[in-house]
Design a binder for these strands. Structure first.
Lengths: 233, 233
DNA sequence: TGACGACTCATACGATCGTTTGAGATGATG
DNA sequence: CATCATCTCAAACGATCGTATGAGTCGTCA
């Protein structure tokens, strides 16, 4: 029992915590680009120029480091994304308001993927955690995905008269599904360059596609099939 | 150099190939439920009640086994899915034809997930390979995903007058994005039961949402923003 | 019968993994 | 100075991984 055992040691030493921060930075980059399982503690500590045991000392385990990587960014990301949605939600209902909400959301989701490496890493990290979870469920879904999806749900309801909450939730799933797939495509595309439409085209398409889809979801969707499931079959 | 080295030995021995088939069956199940990296050769050979070295003897390597698991099912799956789309493509254009195409496609994508375990494994396998590729790119995308997406693109063009091929391709991405996300949700839901709307509701929503999205994609989508990107920003 | 190919077997190899250990360095505190 | 907590270090531990090796079993055929 040497270390603080995944407890912040709240040290006062000047150089204390430098290794800790370096580990978090390096781990964030590696986890984002390779995933949790494919990133070894040895590689992290080598890139961070510190000892192998530092991970276990500061974070208790590899998983503890992974959780702390997320925890460090949780509030910032959630607040930023919620702010974007709230910014969109203040728009008074009217023609084009739905498109504006969708465009803001899609951009805030996709944009970090193209430019600098900071937000990009974070988005890739989130995407990986969505597909292959290692965090306790209440941490990721409860702290990030949940509030964001709920906020988008409300924004959709506000800008689309007649849209029920249940239908809006389904629409949110449809929208995030498209965005996650696009993010995956971008990630793989950066690894091995392949053909594909530029991102601005894709975002524009998703906005237009989804706006129509949302508007078509008003009405008695959940239970029956008002406009009719196809006649045959 | 003992074995056939990933070459079908086309043996005539009565019991020859029994181990091979058992390995393929067990590996298919394990790869589907746990993924490639998380499935060890030792677990496969243990479940198949054969020796550890059998994998390397029959398939050359773990990756060779993985490829053969796919190769064994490639034609059947592709033909089945293409048949479903062609069945949908024969529908003469008209009101509701687009919904019918989408419903057939979505059902053929989602339905194997719920019922028996055979098609379910395959769908999970495909989903995993989409997200975390291990196969040579020309094998998966070229043999399955490519033809299917191309067929759906043409079916959309046929049932939606004025839809350009480029726009249709974007729509296909939107549709598959929703379906893949739904498949992921089903997979995780089967592991840890959580709340969520029943699948029939989700499929109905995807059909309605996507039909509206497709119809909204006719017109000069690719380059400009005919109906306007949101005014501000 | 004896040689041969096909196949399975137990076992070992080398590598990598996450984690643990105990000693040493450092700086604040009494 | 002595003490103590904080932090870093080299080194090792035990486990698991994919793969390789060589002997052994069995059916076929000259």
């Amino acid at each position: 029992m040497h270390g603080p055992r995944a407890q912040r040691p709240d040290t006062g030493v000047d150089s204390g915590g430098q290794t800790r921060e370096r580990l978090l930075d390096v781990a964030e980059r590696l986890f984002a680009s390779r995933g949790f399982a494919a990133t070894s503690v040895r590689r992290i500590t080598r890139d961070a120029a510190c000892n192998l045991a530092a991970v276990n000392y500061h974070f208790g385990s590899k998983l503890g480091l992974y959780e702390e990587v997320f925890r460090r960014r949780l509030e910032a990301v959630r607040d930023q994304r919620l702010a974007a949605i709230r910014r969109a939600a203040t728009i008074q209902p009217g023609p084009g308001a739905l498109e504006e909400v969708l465009y803001i959301f899609a951009s805030s989701f996709i944009e970090p993927l193209v430019g600098e490496s900071h937000g990009r890493m974070l988005t890739e990290l989130m995407g990986r955690e969505m597909l292959d979870p290692h965090l306790p469920p209440e941490m990721f879904r409860g702290e990030i995905a949940g509030p964001v999806q709920e906020a988008l749900t409300q924004a959709l309801c506000r800008t689309t008269p007649g849209l029920s909450v249940d239908a809006a939730r389904l629409c949110v799933q449809s929208i995030t599904g498209q965005l996650v797939q696009t993010a995956q495509r971008v990630r793989r595309q950066s690894a091995t360059p392949m053909a594909g439409p530029p991102l601005t085209i894709v975002v524009d398409h998703i906005v237009r596609f989804s706006a129509a889809g949302v508007r078509a979801s008003v009405g008695g969707a959940p239970a029956g099939s008002p406009h009719g499931r196809p006649q045959r079959s």
